[in-house]
Amino acid sequence: MEINKPDIVSPEKNKDERFEDFLLAEYNNIASAHFNAKTQISNFFRYYLLLIALPLPVIGAFKVFGSDKYASNLGGLSLDFVHYGGVLSFCLFAVGFLVMVYIINLNVSSILYARTVNGIRHYYYELYAENLSEIQVLSDSIDRPRLSGRHSMYWICATFSIIDGFYCYLWLKLIFNCPPGALTIFMLSLFLHLFCCYIVFKNAEIRIDKSRSK
């Protein structure tokens, strides 16, 4: 990402002009950072979908090449498949949860970037725009977008909870052979993911309030 450097040391410019140069450079840099964060969110989600597709050929390989010398009581599956499949399922559950947390934090950063851009936009609107209602389309509020609004990550977290819930159920089934019901696992997974999303957003709001009170 190219960084725009403001001309704030030019002796030909007064203090206000140098400050406006700084704001313009900051606007461009933060706007680029915002779109870069959105791109990273999309990329990480694609990588995650690719990752969860990997067990399919692995399962096929175990079914074809797995040793049938020792069979478990899970439908005649080999113990190799049970052990490695259980470990793989748990790893995918853990990785999925951690990837979700990282994506949530990227989304929080993206929202903070957007609010910074809005604040700079508000400065220039107030300074130069006489008929603001005729030209304003984008928001100039530093409280928008909301962390927990309709554009939040809750729907994505719900998607992660379904996928991770499946692998959690598979892990318990293969390793312990006595998991709770599938619906119970999915409900617990949904609660865990949404609660984590809520905690991250709540901590972000607390940090924002503290920074404004300084």
Rank of each mutant, 00 (worst) to 15 (best):
G66T: 12
I30W: 07
V58M: 12
D209R: 15
Y84N: 04
S72R: 12
F201Q: 00
I199D: 08
L127R: 04
G85C: 06
R46I: 11
I135P: 02
M100P: 03
N177F: 06
R146F: 08
H151A: 02
V9Y: 10
E2Q: 14
R18V: 07
F22W: 14
T184E: 10
L54Y: 03
R18D: 03
F166H: 09
P11I: 07
V101T: 10
I156P: 01
F186I: 10
A31N: 09
T116P: 02
G85Y: 01
P145K: 00
A158I: 11
K173T: 13
V200D: 08
N105V: 08
M187G: 03
T116R: 15
I8M: 09
V64T: 11
V9M: 08
A129V: 13
F195H: 02
R212S: 06
C197H: 03
G86L: 11
M187V: 12
Y125M: 09
L194G: 02
F191H: 05
K63E: 13
V58Q: 02
S148G: 09
F45C: 15
V117W: 03
R150N: 06
V101C: 14
T39D: 10
H193D: 01
L88H: 01
M187N: 07
I206A: 08
G165S: 07
V117M: 10
R212P: 03
F201Y: 05
N105C: 10
P6N: 05
T39M: 04
F97I: 00
S189G: 04
F35Y: 11
D140P: 04
A129H: 12
N29Q: 05
R150L: 14
D143T: 14
L172A: 11
Y124R: 02
S161T: 05
N118A: 14
I206K: 14
E134S: 12
N177I: 05
S42P: 02
D16M: 11
S89N: 05
L49H: 08
F97G: 01
H151T: 02
G181C: 07
F166L: 13
L192D: 02
L192V: 04
Y47W: 05
V117T: 07
F186R: 01
W171E: 01
N203W: 14
L147N: 03
Q136L: 05
A129F: 12
S110T: 13
D68E: 15
L194S: 04
A182H: 08
V137P: 02
Y169A: 00
G96P: 08
W171H: 03
E20P: 06
K63A: 14
E2F: 06
S189Y: 00
S139W: 07
F90S: 01
Q40H: 07
